[in-house]
Design a protein around this nucleic acid. Structure first.
Length: 276
DNA sequence: GTTAATACCTGTTCGC
DNA sequence: TGCGAACAGGTATTAA
């Protein structure tokens, strides 16, 4: 379940393998994932040098020497498996295989096939339909109390749902929304437009803190870039509410018990004692 | 315009 | 032991 920190961890793990290197060969082993792959993707990737690896929200963008950018999303279960010769046999969920100059191989493995890959002109990559309406990067300068307050103003939807809306802030998923709301001591069911400014400021800090800590935890697991699948970061990271239903609240002196509810068909974990 | 529900997908876990 | 149901959830689409 890669969210922003996991995707950033994957990007950093890919850097030494891909940046500055030529993709010598691409193999597409099925028509597409969530959507069909772009026409002639193999031919458009073969021979291209990766000039930069960027991230926007949960998307990874590989700029190519051809003037195109490879855009990819890991979806729910997507992993990028890196290997050196001799390569392990491909499995049925290895959908796209990139053979890199020098012998390394990057396989896009995605059991649930919610992931995507596309090729777009680098100059207009930010106008891609999947990127155009994304909100600010939560770790960037464009994410601040005033902007979040404006985006939430008048919204009657629960703050939990609002923070999952990628147009309001980009890159958060179910896990980090729960964790950020816990840190900010805000009840997940509170109406988004009815949160005081001081509490929004605290929420901005909580979002930044939880993401930065998760990236740091993910990075610490990357001594071997072969494990650049984004999943290690999750298990390394100690969540305070996510997946802890029935367990005691970790806030000192709180004494509450973490509860699990459903919001919009998704599980929400929170402490009913200290989140208001 | 806003909000909620649904579809997509399959490996894993849980209850009977 | 075996089977089916429930669950995980990011995003686009559809419905209300």
């Amino acid at each position: 379940m890669p969210e922003l920190p996991e995707v950033e961890t994957v990007r950093r793990g890919l850097l030494p393998v891909l940046e500055g290197r030529v993709i010598e060969r691409a193999e597409i082993r099925r028509e597409g994932l969530r959507w069909p792959f772009p026409p002639r993707m193999e031919a458009r990737l073969a021979g291209a040098r990766v000039t930069a690896l960027r991230r926007r929200s949960k998307y990874i963008l590989a700029d190519l020497s051809t003037g195109e950018t490879l855009l990819l999303h890991l979806g729910m279960s997507g992993r990028l498996l890196i290997s050196e010769p001799p390569h392990p046999p491909l499995t049925r969920h290895d959908h796209v295989v990139l053979d890199i100059e020098g012998g390394a191989r990057v396989a896009f493995n995605d059991a649930r096939r919610f992931g995507m890959m596309d090729l777009v002109a680098t100059e207009t990559a930010h106008e891609h339909r999947l990127l155009a309406s994304l909100g600010p990067e939560p770790l960037g300068n464009g994410f601040h109390e005033a902007g979040l307050a404006a985006a939430l103003a008048g919204r009657r939807t629960p703050i939990k749902s609002a923070l999952l809306d990628q147009r309001i802030v980009a890159g958060l998923g179910n896990i980090y929304v729960c964790e950020a709301l816990f840190r900010a001591a805000i009840h997940p069911g509170r109406q988004a437009g009815r949160i005081a400014a001081a509490r929004i400021a605290r929420l901005v800090r909580a979002i930044r803190d939880v993401l930065a800590e998760a990236i740091a935890a993910g990075g610490s697991t990357l001594s071997d870039y072969r494990q650049a699948d984004g999943e290690l970061g999750y298990f390394q990271h100690a969540f305070r509410v996510y997946g802890r239903a029935g367990a005691p609240c970790t806030r000192p002196g709180c004494g509450g018990t973490i509860r699990r509810i459903a919001q919009g068909g998704r599980s929400t974990f929170y402490c009913p004692q200290c989140q208001r």
